[in-house]
Computed example of a mutant assay.
Amino acid sequence: MKRGVIAASFAVLLSATTAQAADEVEIDFVLNWIAGGDHAPYYYAKEQGWYEEAGIDLNIEQGKGSQMAVQRTGIGQTQLGLADLGTALIAKGKGADFVAVMNIYANSPYGMYWLKSSGIKDVKDFPGHSIGNPPSDAARAMWPALAKAVGIDPDSVKWVNVQPNAKLAGLKSGAFDVTSSFYNIHHIFQRELGDDMGFFAWKEYGINPYGNSIIVNGEFLKEHPEAVKNFVAVTQRAFKFCVESPEPCVDALVAANSGLQKDNELQNWALVVELLTDETSTTKGLGYFDEDRLKADYELTETYFELDQPFDIMDVVTNEYIDPSITVPTK
């Protein structure tokens, strides 16, 4: 009798598990770069089983630049991607099929670095010098906007192709004169360059578009809106948790990616918190897009780049999946 009850119970459990597996949606999520402190919340949520509980079988893929993340997501090679929004809007104007559903960097992360000993004092001295960047780097794509904003010819600099992790080494060795980097690794440049470090943030010159944002392939969004909603809900929850409790999040990141150092990634994450915090993210929802800023971002893109297919920015970005009750914690 007991065996019959146990067998029946096991059959029910197996049936439920099979049904859950059948309903699970597979999602390939490509990062903007190789994993670092700024990606800790995704790894923590995956380690804790939060995505799985939400019916998502998540595969996190290492990235090679925002342009590549947009390209892959825009053609459906990956379902979701993490990419600089300005870079994504340029790709949208060329036909990429995606919708942005959550912003991560409410403040632009772009910064330029050089050695003061090179004689460069500020951006006005960049003409005639070389800038080391990967071909798919977000800042490289947006460079014409900054150049025109400060009154220099975008073509007055020479671009040197370099691997993402070789920017600092190339700058120190003299392989090029200037490089760009996201603010979340500012501490590394400070440590390595010391008093010889030259730096400015793009937002100092009025270029402050939304940075890294989560984008979804358009067809996938139409077919799986519930999965996208669940992904955003889990990700909001994870980012809020990691702002409040960074150590377990960074531990999960380091455990999943060999070669990373906990102390370094904790510093990285602390800078990320600065980037994701603004008035909107602390009041209207973590990841919420402000409509006026979006329109300004579109105007920036339209002004400095040729859009083969002009579009309505509000058709490309949505706050539909943002839970306004989940905000960036303030201390």
Rank of each mutant, 00 (worst) to 15 (best):
T17D: 10
E279G: 15
W114K: 11
V101L: 09
F182Y: 14
N165G: 07
A40D: 07
A7Y: 12
D312S: 09
Y51D: 02
A256D: 00
D177E: 01
N165W: 00
C242A: 12
S213E: 02
N184M: 14
S213D: 09
V101H: 04
N103E: 13
F289W: 15
S130K: 11
V99F: 01
K262P: 03
E61T: 05
G74R: 05
G285R: 12
M314E: 02
A169C: 05
G93C: 01
A45C: 00
L89Q: 09
A145S: 11
S258T: 11
G65T: 13
A106H: 07
E61V: 09
K158E: 10
Y288C: 04
G81F: 01
K262A: 07
E52A: 13
N32C: 14
P246M: 03
Q163L: 03
F220D: 00
S213Y: 06
G211Q: 12
R72E: 03
G119M: 10
A35Y: 03
G211V: 00
Y44F: 15
K284P: 01
G95T: 05
C242E: 04
G174F: 02
S245F: 02
V101Y: 13
E247V: 12
E274F: 07
S213L: 09
I75T: 08
M68F: 07
T235A: 05
C242Y: 06
G285K: 10
A88K: 09
I27E: 14
A141C: 08
F199M: 10
K167A: 08
F239N: 04
N217T: 11
K240Y: 03
H39Q: 14
C242Q: 08
S118M: 01
A227D: 05
S108Y: 11
N59P: 02
E244H: 02
D23W: 01
S66Y: 11
A238W: 04
L266F: 05
H129T: 13
K172H: 02
A138E: 06
L221F: 04
L13N: 10
D290F: 08
T277I: 09
V328L: 04
S108A: 10
N212W: 10
K2V: 15
S9W: 15
P144F: 04
L171K: 11
E47W: 08
N264W: 02
L85S: 12
F176C: 15
Q163A: 14
E52R: 12
G36N: 15
G81C: 06
T87R: 14
A141L: 03
G65L: 12
N184H: 04
E26T: 14
E61Q: 07
A7K: 10
F311T: 12
V250D: 05
W143H: 05
E61R: 13
V150L: 13
N217F: 00
N161S: 11
I185H: 08
L115Q: 12
K94V: 06
G65P: 11
E52G: 00
E279Y: 08
V234H: 01
A256H: 06
